[in-house]
């Protein structure tokens, strides 16, 4: 019985991602860093947003629809929404940069 439960849990967590939010997104979502366990494998940041929108909704609906207003970095490199992501990757989503 316990083994079945463990297998179920293991199957439920297919892909792990480290998610970071900055600036207004950090404030809207109420966190700056979270480890996300996905029950479905995703191949791009865009697909990740789609899964979060469908499974969680709320703020994720707005973010998915307005993704063109935001930037994404994969493992600390500026990337595009369609770039490839892998298990364990660090995904950061933030508004355009305003330093200097």
């Amino acid at each position: 019985m316990r083994w079945v439960l463990m297998k179920k849990l293991w199957l439920a967590k297919i892909m792990n991602l480290k998610l970071l939010f900055f600036a207004n997104l950090r404030e809207q979502f109420g966190f700056s860093y979270k480890e996300i366990n996905l029950s479905k494998k995703v191949s791009s940041p865009e697909e990740f947003l789609l899964v979060m929108r469908n499974q969680i909704g709320g703020e994720w609906v707005n973010l998915f629809e307005n993704k063109k207003l935001y930037k994404v970095a994969i493992n600390q490199n500026l990337s595009s929404w369609k770039d490839h992501i892998l298990e364990g990757d660090e995904l950061a989503i933030f508004p355009p940069i305003t330093g200097g």
């Binding site: 900055f22 970095a73 933030f94 940069i97 330093g99």
Partner: peptide, 12 residues
Amino acid sequence: IDFLKTDAPFWK
């Protein structure tokens, strides 16, 4: 400084 303004992740 031109590239810092658009490529270095800072937010004000």
